[in-house]
């Protein structure tokens, strides 16, 4: 709890500094999405007020401590009251730039090739053109993984997130077999992490340090949401593919624009992937209509190692 206070103070200080006290307290205090930020090269951070006003401030004002377990384990089980996190993925903008992947891996101190977020090359039917399909954990409302866990190590919170307590997980991998979306990854070997991260206090919200013999996956970055930041994948995407936000407040943001969640789904015919499985995902997709990039654009620039992963699918599309 102490850390939490420090954090609140830090945020309050910063808010005062940018003299947005009244508007922004409401914004950052309650709404993660409208308090978006983008860390640019010159360490300036963009902030978005609910009125759509963009304010740029120095990032050092963001007095927020990376990867401190900011809540207790109990709170990490309960979740953030009043929230219902959602993500909307705009398939028409993705070109497999893979910036989301590297940002995610970096933020969580995971090696580049143990992705929590993958980009599939999807093709719905023979005559349908292929498209890139980024996929992270869907944080299902009826999660098959949670149902099967024998020790309650993976659980569903009131704010919709499905998290894993990797200090409780026994590594039976049942949840991996149960997840129909192959979302989860296992620490097959002793994970390599920086010394201080390895000895950080473990918390399901931060997901560090990784532990050998346990399961992990995309966590929707609740630690960042608590301090009003968007997940790294959302921030890093150069094309604004990911929108992250709160269903209760009906807003989602990709860092550049903040939109009404329901309106967005309505306007763009948003859908949930494999609705028929009954898992009720919290991630929505916008169909790949009017695509901004041809599929090959993403493929050409990939390193050979990554290219090899799509080889079969790519060959199928050229015919």
């Amino acid at each position: 709890m102490k850390e939490l206070e420090t954090n609140d103070n830090g945020r309050r200080d910063f808010i005062k500094t940018v003299a947005l006290a009244t508007v922004a307290t409401a914004a950052c205090g309650t709404l993660a999405s409208s308090c978006s930020s983008k860390v640019a090269a010159n360490e300036k951070v963009k902030l978005l007020s609910p009125d759509g006003e963009i304010v740029e401030i120095d990032s050092s004002y963001l007095n927020y401590q990376e990867h401190l377990a900011i809540v207790s384990k109990l709170e990490a089980r309960q979740g953030i009251a009043g929230k219902k996190f959602v993500m909307v993925v705009d398939l028409s903008r993705c070109k497999d730039a893979r910036k989301c992947i590297s940002a995610c891996q970096k933020w969580h101190y995971r090696p580049e090739d143990r992705e929590w977020l993958t980009v599939k090359l999807m093709r719905d039917s023979e005559n349908a053109p292929p498209y890139w399909f980024p996929k992270q954990c869907f944080h299902c409302d009826n999660p098959p993984c949670v149902k099967v866990c024998p020790v309650d190590a993976t659980y569903k919170r009131q704010d919709g997130l499905v998290l894993i307590d990797n200090e409780r997980c026994i590594g039976c991998k049942f949840c991996m077999a149960a997840c129909p979306y192959s979302t989860r990854v296992f620490n097959w070997n002793e994970p390599e992490m920086p010394f201080d991260i390895q000895h950080a206090v473990s918390n399901p919200e931060t997901n560090i340090p990784a532990k050998v013999g346990t399961v992990e996956k995309c966590d929707f970055c609740p630690d960042r949401a608590r301090v009003g930041l968007l997940p790294p994948c959302v921030e890093a995407c150069p094309n604004g593919v990911f929108y992250y936000g709160d269903e209760n407040e009906d807003t989602v943001s990709n860092g550049d624009e903040t939109l009404g969640f329901k309106q967005l789904i309505k306007d763009r015919a948003g859908y949930r992937f494999m609705e028929e499985l009954g898992t009720k995902p919290r991630v929505y997709y916008l169909p790949p209509k009017d695509r901004q990039f041809p599929v090959e654009r993403g493929y050409e620039n990939l390193p050979d190692k990554i290219k090899a992963r799509y080889k079969d699918a790519m060959e199928g599309t050229e015919k």
Binding site: P150, V151, R168, C172
Partner: peptide, 21 residues
């Protein structure tokens, strides 16, 4: 198959009856 044999006792201290395991 269990990744963390050292935590087997979790099956008894945090049992979850809903799980087929």
């Amino acid at each position: 198959c269990v990744g963390r044999l050292d935590r087997l006792h979790h099956l008894f201290i945090y049992p979850r009856l809903q799980s087929p395991i």
